[in-house]
Design a protein around this nucleic acid. Structure first.
Lengths: 139, 139
DNA sequence: TTCTACATTATAATAGTTCTAAACTGTTGA
DNA sequence: TCAACAGTTTAGAACTATTATAATGTAGAA
């Protein structure tokens, strides 16, 4: 437990109590410059690999949802049997490899801005997400 | 049971036996010029409203998946507690109204073609889907 | 220190979807 | 026409991700 004051501040400033579970989850999710995708299941495994005190499944769900609501995580819209989350909250899109069931970032610079020339009255756009499904090329 | 030969042909030509359940589901899904979105749940309700012989839930799932695999239906990528399908298999995109949990088509003409300037070696693009999430505009 | 509201926890509950295995039916070919 | 077989349907059980419950624990304020 060295440099967790950043997480404590972050949590406190968004109205979340800095509990040791939340700090640990912050470490697992944000203690790297690389962003990544994960499912709850994968996160639970990652946590138990990196810590001795186990965190209950319910807490992991609660925390991930709290972080998502605060904008620290994004949920990626995919039809899958489980939800995918992304620690990269900047604007970008995804490939989904249906063969390997693998998610890959598409750098925002590699996608021309998506222009929507229609609106729904009384609604404002919250996000525009592009999902590019790919499969093995057997040609 | 009048003009079902079209469905029988369609099914047979794609290697699906034209059972009476499948024909009935074709009627429910394709007997209109309007395309629409549905969940399995909604489809089951729609079927039971339009027919007397009930079709088992398992068959509805099987049939929807078979139709999806044959390209007669598209699954719409959304994070939801249930899967959404679309009888409109042409290239188009969607608004998802998070307030009302409602899906709305975006005419393909209203979206500038999405240009992806990167590829994954050995993979070919299967689909490019844009999901525009909207919410009530309280400004 | 004490109090209180917020968090965590194990477990139960829920709900969508898939599996199972027995019964049924379209299709083929004799 | 009819037997045989592979594909299909079915009810219900099983499975799995997620959410709810309610008791216990804990951070932060007074």
């Amino acid at each position: 437990m060295l440099n967790n004051s950043q997480y404590i501040d972050k949590l406190r400033s968004s109205g979340l109590r800095p509990t040791k579970q939340r700090i640990k989850i912050c470490e697992v999710l944000f203690n790297t410059h690389k962003t990544f995708h994960f499912t709850i299941n994968e996160l639970v495994k990652r946590i138990s690999k990196l810590t001795n005190d186990k965190i209950s499944l319910a807490t992991v769900y609660n925390t991930v949802h709290a972080f998502k609501n605060k904008g620290y995580l994004k949920e990626i819209p995919i039809n899958s049997d489980q939800s995918y989350f992304d620690t990269n909250t900047s604007h970008h899109h995804h490939f989904y490899d249906e063969t390997q069931k693998d998610l890959i970032d598409i750098d925002d610079a590699d996608v021309e801005p998506v222009k929507i020339n229609t609106r729904i009255p009384g609604k404002k756009i919250k996000s525009v997400e592009v999902l590019v499904k790919v499969e093995d090329d057997k040609s």
